[in-house]
Structure formats: C-alpha cells, structure tokens
Design a protein around this nucleic acid. Sequence first.
DNA 1: AACACAAATAACAACGTTATTAAAGAGAGA
DNA 2: TCTCTCTTTAATAACGTTGTTATTTGTGTT
Lengths: 326, 326
Amino acid sequence: MVSIKDIAERAGVSYSTVSKALNDSPLVKEETKRRILEIARSMGYQRNLLARHLVSGRTRLIGFGLVNLGNPIFANLTIQLHRALAALDYRMVIAISPDEIDLLNQMRADGLVIWADLVSRHPHLMEELGRWQAKTLVIGTDEPVPLPHVRFDRRAGIAEAVRYLRSFGHRRIGFIGSSQEIKVRAFLEAVEQAGLQPSPDWLYPAEPTFEGGYRAIRYARPDIPMPTAFIGLNNLITKGALRALLELGYRIPQDVSLIGYDNLPDMQFAEVPITTVGPSLEEVADFAAHRIVDMIDGKPGADAHVVEPILIPRASVERAPDRDAG
Amino acid sequence: MVSIKDIAERAGVSYSTVSKALNDSPLVKEETKRRILEIARSMGYQRNLLARHLVSGRTRLIGFGLVNLGNPIFANLTIQLHRALAALDYRMVIAISPDEIDLLNQMRADGLVIWADLVSRHPHLMEELGRWQAKTLVIGTDEPVPLPHVRFDRRAGIAEAVRYLRSFGHRRIGFIGSSQEIKVRAFLEAVEQAGLQPSPDWLYPAEPTFEGGYRAIRYARPDIPMPTAFIGLNNLITKGALRALLELGYRIPQDVSLIGYDNLPDMQFAEVPITTVGPSLEEVADFAAHRIVDMIDGKPGADAHVVEPILIPRASVERAPDRDAG
DNA sequence: AACACAAATAACAACGTTATTAAAGAGAGA
DNA sequence: TCTCTCTTTAATAACGTTGTTATTTGTGTT
C-alpha cells in the first residue's frame, strides 16, 4: 500500500508536507500542493483513515443499529437518517447485530443510533451501551429507558386516531393487529375515553403483515357486525385490510373508514389513499441526527425526548353511514 | 479514554504484557492474566480497533453496499450474507451510498461486496472500485462487468419458468412487469423457443410493486383473452397479481397458473403457495462470502461466476385447463 | 555457589497519520 | 552586508496497539 511517506520520497519533500498538502493546508505553497496531489493521484494513494482517526480522535462516523430489515418503516427511517446525518457531514453505516454494533464502538465511531428493537431483542446490550465510548441514542422505544432516547408516543397516536374517527361520527371502531400490546391497550382505553363501550369483539388479531391484515378482515367472525371504521396496527396490516374490505364489496370510505399506523409515504398510493397516524419519520430522523451530534460535541440536552404522533388526513376516512353515526 | 498503558500502570506491569494478557497469549502467567483482565474490566477498558488494525493490517471487516433497502430481496440477502460471513469470522456492515463505501475502503475494510444496483446507479464507482485497496466483489449483475462479480442468469430463469409452464400444457403465458428489460426480452425469446407465437399482448406492464402487479391484472385490457399462466417479474408483482386473480374469481392453479421470480421464503405463505424461480439467495450469499474471503486471503479463483436459477415447485402451477392445453 | 535453561516480563520499533515545533530560505529595510 | 520578518519546508512527538527482541526472574543441577 502506498503511504504518505512513499509520496514524500517521490516528491522529494518531507512527509509532513505531504500530509498538509493532502489536507489542503494554507501552510504549503500552491505549486507544491498541486505537484504532490498529482503524484498522489498517479501513485493511486488511498487515505488510511485508521491512522488519521487514531491521532485525531474523531471519526465522524455514526453507526445505525437495527434488527428487522424487512419492515418498510426501517427502510424509510434509514434513508431519512442517512440524509440528515450527511447534511451534518457525518457518515452512517448500518449494523444488524450486537456484534457489529460493538465493532463500530471499538472502531471509535463517534455515535451509535440504536433502534429500540435491537435492544429489546438483545437485552444485555442495554447496560453495556451506557459504558461504551461512543455516544448512544436509542430511538423508537415505547417506554423511557435508562439511556438517552427518543420515545414514540404510540398511545397518543392511537388515541388521536380514535378521536379523529369519533369526530366523523364512528361508534363501532375495529382495531386490526395484536403484536404490539401497547397499541392494543391504548386502543381500548381511547375507545372508552371516547365514550364508547369497548369490547373484545372490536379486536381483530393479525400478524403484522399484509397477509395478516387481509386475513383478519376476509375471514373475520361472521357473527360480529362489521365496524364502520378500522385502525390498522401498521402499514402492512392496513393495506391488507383495505384489500380485503374492497374484495368484500365495501366502499372506502363511504361504507368503512380506515386509518393506518405509521406515516409511510406510499400509503397515499394505495387504491384509496390511506389516512395515517404516527411519528413523522423525517422529524424523528432530523431530531436523532442533531441530538447525537450534539451529544458528540458535548452540548447539553435532555436525555429523554418524546416524538408526538401526527395524523395525515387522506381519502380513507369519511363520515360514518347515517344509520350508524352518532 | 482508558488505554492499555493506563492498565499497565495500575497493574504495575509493562504495557506489552497487558497487550498479551488481553489477547490471551500463553506467554504471560495465568495469574497475571487474570489480574490484568480484572483491572481492565474494572477500569471499563474498551479496545481501540483503529490502533489494532493499523498495526495488524487486517480488519476482518466486510462492507456490503446496496442502494434500495425497500426491496424484500435485499433484506433477505443481507441476512444471509451476514450469516455466511459470521460463520467465516468476519463482521459485516452495510453502506447505502458511495460515500460510505469509500469510507469503509479507507477504513481498510478487508473486502467490499457490492450489489449491482449500487454501481449501476453510480457508474463512476465501477472504475474506482478496481483501484481500491479493499477486495471488491459485485453481485447480482445481468452482464459481465470488468470486476470480480457474481452474475445472475436471469435469462435462464425466465426460460426455465416458461419451459416449466409449457410442460404443463400452457400455451397462453403472460408476463407481468416491465422494469427489467432483460427479463422481458428473455420471456419473448423463451416463448418462441417453446414453439409458441410471442405477442405483445402477453406483456402486462407493471410497476415492480404489489400494487403494480395487482393493477396489471385487475385492470387488464378486456379484449385480450386471459392467459392460462403468468410469470411475475418479482415477488411483489406476483403477489399482487395473485390477489387480483383471486379477486376476479379465478381459481389458482386450476384456472390460472402462476410463477414468481425470486425465491423468497415467504412466497410459500401466500394464499396459494407460489412456485418461484430465481437464484438461491442462500447459495449466492454463501458463494459471495467464501469468494470475497478467498480474495482477501489471496487464493485464486475465477473473476466471474454465474449463479444458475433454480425453480421451486409449489402449489400455484397445475395443468392448463383442458380446452386450452396443448 | 555457580551455571544453564526455561518462564515471565520489559523495551522498543513499527503501523500511517496529524499537529506542534524547529529550521531554512527569501525578501525588505537599514 | 546584516538583521528582521514572513513564507515555506523539515523534524519530531504523539495516537494505541502488536510483534519482535532483550532482559530479568526463577528453578533445578552440579
């Protein structure tokens, strides 16, 4: 591998001069700089960041740890976070297991942003993270954790969705999905809050997939009257439910209204543009990027932050059919 | 940050002894080792891999570069590649832009595995990659490229699918999707090869999404007779098409047969388990992992490798209806 | 008590940078 | 010509490791 010293030799200067030239320092003559750069290029020089970072103590590298790549929300969040960090002149690299997170820490990444799923899947990580040299920010938790974190108020999101549907006169509201207990509980509470009598009949258990949402509606118990509105636990379930409803002959939103959790952009491209509720992924990414950078720079800031959900109205919610409204 | 020297001081030994102890060298007395390890632990020592890698010249780190996180095939391939590399005692980290790929190269990652999409999206990368210090393997190309690569024989995959359907008597075979030209061309060729008269009517243009596949079938031109079999360009299109076909009242596979491209495990969990064709992602990951490691170790090997598609028969293909068969 | 020999530890030179300090060279003013 | 600045370049000490070579310590033999 060609190093700074090889270039120095070829150029007949000291290697410290080469270093400065490569960093475009004003301390070296323009002409010398040009000559050195040209030689470096011709020799195929590649910076060794290990050495650079070792002495500078900074890497401008952030690790993003996550575990379930399949979820569309991750793809979205990852891209947003990448964008936000790039704007702050940081590079981001993704790790999908505790091993690699640890590796990035030991390679002196300046910061680590960890999606809550990763720590809940690997609980031992939680206590370790606090002791690591890299600044750590956990995002997407339901509850406060003993580390700097960004919490999503999913309870509020569900409440908002119920309130919104209620304001359109809906009285029979179904909830599709069962994998996130907090949302189910929040739903039952919100329904009661809205002055309705919650019933287990309104809970439609479903795997958190398109398939799951589809089946939950398509093969729902026939003895239970169809709700006039549904809330889907996530984007996939919601899309599946939409498909099933249409297939069963319901018109959306005239007969049945629909709100999906998670504000993914492509929800607006469904057969009926779907009203969604959830954290703004852009906001989350921007906040996380700024916060982790502030932590690295030693700037003060709260260890806990809550991202409030927003509701994005689209075409899938309408007034409840007259005979059911109230 | 606590370093090896701090530990040495506290333990009253030289720092070279500490280094050896931390690496469990047989050259240091067991008791000393234990004592040093204990002190290191209590001081919260964290290895500095920058320094270690700088002197050792090896990182055992592989970068995986890809661009479109949303595609399910990536999630799958990423996990497989991670698994395969972990088995070889390498760590893998993901980069989603040329910037980060370059960063990993400059951080002296031993190898880079690049998904073809990334180089085709950033063409200038191609020529640079060859000059980098990290060994580079491009995977998933359609055509040979001037770098070590793993090519997918998509043409053969389509041909195999057509042949398979033909063997079940199908004569009117539709192809859904238009974003990958090579597959479209291969389809028309294969149809002709199979002794059928290719017609543009059999091409159903569609976005490479679930939505796309659904719409292509649901809103197909009514003047064209329904084919007795379809091949879907990718897994999403195929699932969308399946849904549309069922919705239109076709029985699968009695009325219409269906083959989807890309062997994703979850295709078997569709309403009707879908027969798929495509590269075995497990094979691709295993091959790529071993090849890049061989390259790093300087072992010889061909710069070009073709992964042949395999067809996984499931329930979605059956003999063509009698009146149409031939 | 002197010696050989093994076991354990210490010393030190890398690795490829950056950053700080020292030295050399070039003009300008007297 | 000499000194004083300013510009440019050189020298050198870090950074935190590993690996190699040197030194010390301990043990058994004569």
